[in-house]
Nucleic acid binder design. Structure first.
Length: 444
RNA sequence: GCGGGGAUGGCCCAGUGGUACGGCGGCAGCCUGCUAAGCUGUUUCUCGAAAUGAGAGCAUGGGUUCAAAUCCCAUUCCCCGCGCCA
């Protein structure tokens, strides 16, 4: 959530930011309307309460001195109590409305976010790697990789991952569909082992970079979820457990962010580098018809997430650190990728800035998102009330998050980029984790 | 799931209906040749330009009362014991 004091003091910033994101600025107008009402009410409420407290004190001294003429005063206080009750009820209503409104106001944009909308307008920051590109995709590839010339031309379209999975008996989507529905899967044999290898690789990788690795709760309650996300917008994306106040997490970011809710950290504890390994559950409502085949877009996938709590003045440095950690992973896996500066119209409301890493998928002839790194500045920390102690008082920390590996998407990327005539080569860095270097029909 | 105990400011802890005691730590100042000790103040949130202004705040939500940390009801979490369980 945004800083109400800052909003009151510098409303123009917020109007500009909202416009750039394509948000309706009416919410800001609505906020100011409700806020002035709220302030007005608060004043009269406090005046009445003051009067009440004074009288109560008078009664107290009268009781002590044995004065019995207190019933008149009691009646007066009762009258005031009635008035207070009426205003308080109204104030509660206003507060709820105001808080709903405030939660709809998105974070202020960082200065270097491209102002526009639509995926195609996000700015390509960097391309890296050696790609395999089907002849027909050559122009598209060049246009979207800052004119990279580092690629092999394929004269036959590379095979898509669902075909590969079928051929080598690596998954069972049909039976998963039977028992759970579409967008679920059984991962089998060496593909499953490859997934375990990816998880272990990421865990080792992040441990070496000073992250505390952990497995978080896979379900959290409403309060935590709404603090960690923009829950009103994402309600349809989340699975709710019937009969309990629990939601399945859509990313480990949710528990990693809410775990410190309400806490005050010591300056020396920061930065706090945390990594969460968890399944992610997403309803993918509104994605009908998109990526319906295979395991690219599914209701349940595993992910290793990076999360950092830090001091406000350091957060842009840690943003770079998160992105370069992720980059180093894709470099080490030798997957061709580009980095995209997500434009204002596509940014989630928590993020001040977001970089995506997109890997080249040769069968699709497209770059597709595998990593999303955001600096949420103090927006998430304010909703969750996470501060740190400074000599000038307690201040909100900044929070940042980034994917390290979303395993299902990376498995797809490996199958597509590492395919050979009679199998899939395992990326070199993963071989120590898998114990095999090929996925073929011969061995399960 | 059952029984018992508990939750108070950054931390520890007191408080059986009258408006949060005390300590520790942190910060600021005073005192000191320096350090330590000592002394004084301060320590959460909100409204307010500010006040030597006011309000709120004792796990959460209700209730009783002129007045609730305190009494009543419900809920959450933690600890101990029992039960169940991969």
């Amino acid at each position: 959530m945004i800083d109400i004091k800052l909003l009151r003091a510098d409303s123009k910033k917020f109007y500009d930011s909202c416009k750039a994101r394509g948000f309706d600025t009416e919410i800001l107008d609505k906020f100011f309307m409700l806020d002035s009402k709220w302030k007005q009410n608060l004043r009269t409420l406090n005046d009445y309460k003051h009067e009440k407290n004074t009288m109560s004190l008078e009664i107290s001294t009268m009781v002590k001195t044995g004065n019995t003429e207190i019933s008149k005063l009691k009646d007066k206080v009762k009258d005031i109590n009635d008035k207070i009750a009426i205003i308080e009820e109204e104030q509660k209503r206003i507060e709820i409305q105001r808080s709903e409104t405030v939660h709809l106001i998105p974070n202020l944009l960082a200065d270097d976010v491209p102002v526009c909308s639509g995926d195609d307008n996000s700015k390509i920051v960097k391309y890296c790697g050696h790609a395999r590109v089907f002849t027909e995709d050559e122009n598209y590839f060049k246009q979207n990789s800052m004119n990279s010339t580092d690629y092999d031309v394929m004269h036959v379209r590379p095979v898509d991952h669902q075909t590969i999975m079928e051929k080598y008996d690596l998954a069972d989507l049909q039976r998963a569909g039977k028992i759970a529905g579409s967008r679920f899967y059984f991962l089998k044999n060496r593909l499953f082992k490859l997934e375990l290898a990816l998880i272990n690789y990421a865990v080792d990788f992040l441990s070496q970079r000073n992250f505390t690795v952990m497995e978080p709760p896979f379900m959290i309650n409403y309060t935590s979820m709404s603090g960690a996300t923009d829950i009103e917008t994402f309600k349809d994306a989340l699975y709710k457990i019937e009969g309990d106040d629990l939601y399945l997490i859509a990313t480990a970011e949710h528990p990693l962010a809410s775990m410190l809710a309400g806490e005050i950290l010591e300056e020396g504890e920061l930065p706090l580098r945390l990594s969460g390994v968890s399944p992610c559950f997403r309803r993918e409502a509104g994605a009908h018809g998109k990526d319906t085949k295979g395991i690219f877009r599914v209701h349940q996938f595993n992910k290793i997430e990076q999360f950092i709590y830090c001091k406000p003045e350091d957060s842009w440095d840690y943003f770079k650190e998160l992105v370069s950690n992720a980059e180093d992973i894709y470099k080490s896996l030798d997957l061709p990728y580009r980095i995209v500066n997500i434009c204002s119209g596509d940014l989630g409301s928590l993020a001040a800035k977001k970089y995506d890493i997109e890997v080249w998928y040769p069968s699709q002839g497209k770059f597709r998102e595998v990593v999303s790194a955001s600096n949420d500045t103090d927006y998430q920390a304010r909703s969750l009330n996470i501060k740190y102690r400074t000599p000038d008082g307690n201040k909100f920390v900044h929070t940042l998050n980034s994917t390290a590996i979303a395993t299902e998407r990376v498995l797809v990327a490996i199958m597509e980029n590492y395919q050979q005539e009679n199998g899939i080569k395992v990326p070199d860095v993963l071989v120590p984790y898998t114990g095999f270097s090929q996925i073929t029909t011969e061995v399960k």
